[in-house]
Structures are given as structure tokens and as C-alpha cells.
């Protein structure tokens, strides 16, 4: 259930051609991954400062979006931009030396929500059709960008159980989403 590179590439290509809607979808699709990396790496910062860093990265993506080559994959480009800005921001905020392996972004983005079944407008409606606990997990992880470990602690579940529940819930949502279209 990750955002494929082709999906992101299609959106960013359209965005760089002037399609604002595709651009909004692109930025929305990458934000949860950015947020989870910033949260994991910047634990010492408050939630507001973390969100400021997320926004700085988004702004950098915006200002440098013309440096993506439309025939090459988006993710390596995205990780590089995000890593540069996150390291930069943390250094400036004085949270010490930052060790930030590029894999963090890869993992975070692989685990990011697929925009198809959870397009914002029908997310709430779809979530209403599955059980409350699963809906809560999906909402926390995919819409609010919470860590699975954090969600587990809150719901008194192990992290593994959260991941399994999340995976099943996403499958059900995808099935529901398809059912609605067809």
C-alpha cells in the first residue's frame, strides 16, 4: 500500500506543467512520510517545531521542483531534498549532530498511504464502514502521521499487532473503494 513512484512522477510531471490540483495531491501524498521522518528524528523538538520543519521541507520541494528530471524516478530526488532540508533545520535548531540515513525516507515513503483508496474526500465515509478500532488506527497512522509504536502504546497493542491491523484495514478500505467505483 505504498505510493508508487509512477504515481508520484505522474503527479509531479503534471504539477510542473502547471496543474495545481495534481501538485496539491503530490504534496499531500508525500507529507505523511516527511512528517514521520521528522518526528522520528526530531524527538527533542516540540510538535510545533517538528511541523515547522515539515513545512520547510515542503517549501524547499516547491522552490526546487524544477530540479527534478521528468524522466527519472521521483523518490531519490525527494529523499535528497528532504534529507538536505531536515539536516539543515535540525542543525539550525541546535538538536546536535544529526545522523540521518537516506533509508529513513525510503522506509517512510514506502509505508505512506496510497492516495487511491484514501483520497481525502471519501476517506471519512470509507472509514465509517469499517470497525472503530481499525478506523482509529488508519486515521492515526495514515492521516495524522503518527508512529505505529505510538498508536500501539495508546491502544494497548503491540506495534506488530498495529501493523497487522493496519494492513488488513487498508485492504478492506481498498476493496470498499473499488466497490464504490464499480
Amino acid at each position: 500500500m505504498s505510493v508508487t513512484d509512477e504515481t508520484l512522477a505522474g503527479l509531479l510531471r503534471a504539477a510542473n506543467a502547471g496543474d495545481g490540483r495534481a501538485y496539491a495531491r503530490f504534496l499531500t501524498a508525500v507529507t505523511p512520510a516527511l512528517r514521520s521522518v521528522v518526528r522520528a528524528r526530531g524527538r527533542g523538538l516540540g510538535a510545533e517545531a517538528q511541523e515547522d520543519v515539515v513545512q520547510e521541507v515542503l517549501l524547499a520541494i516547491h522552490l526546487k521542483r524544477h530540479t527534478w528530471q521528468s524522466d527519472s524516478p521521483v523518490k531519490p530526488w525527494l529523499y535528497a531534498v528532504a534529507r538536505y532540508k531536515v539536516v539543515d533545520a535540525f542543525r539550525r535548531l541546535g538538536s546536535g549532530r544529526v545522523h540521518l540515513p537516506i533509508e529513513d525516507f525510503a522506509e517512510a515513503l514506502e509505508g505512506a498511504p496510497a492516495p487511491e483508496p484514501l483520497a481525502a474526500h471519501d476517506a471519512a465515509r470509507l472509514l465509517g464502514q469499517i470497525d472503530a478500532r481499525s478506523a482509529e488506527i488508519v486515521r492515526a497512522v495514515h492521516l495524522e502521521g503518527e508512529e505505529t509504536a505510538q498508536v500501539g502504546a495508546r491502544l494497548a497493542m503491540t506495534e506488530g499487532a498495529v501493523r497487522v491491523a493496519l494492513h488488513r484495514a487498508m485492504k478492506r478500505l481498498a476493496a470498499l473503494g473499488r466497490g464504490n467505483e464499480g
Binding site: 501538485y23 496539491a24 515542503l58
Partner: peptide
């Protein structure tokens, strides 16, 4: 500013760009 608002604003002022060469 909320992140969603930032995204909306960025998307609203995003003209076509020429790739670097």
C-alpha cells in the same frame, strides 16, 4: 500556518516550471 493550508497555497501559486538544463 497549518500544513494543509501551506499545501493549498503552494498549489495555488505554482505556475509551470522549466526544468534546469
Amino acid at each position: 500556518m497549518k500544513t494543509e493550508d501551506l499545501i493549498t497555497r503552494l498549489a495555488a501559486e505554482a505556475p509551470a516550471t522549466a526544468p534546469i538544463s
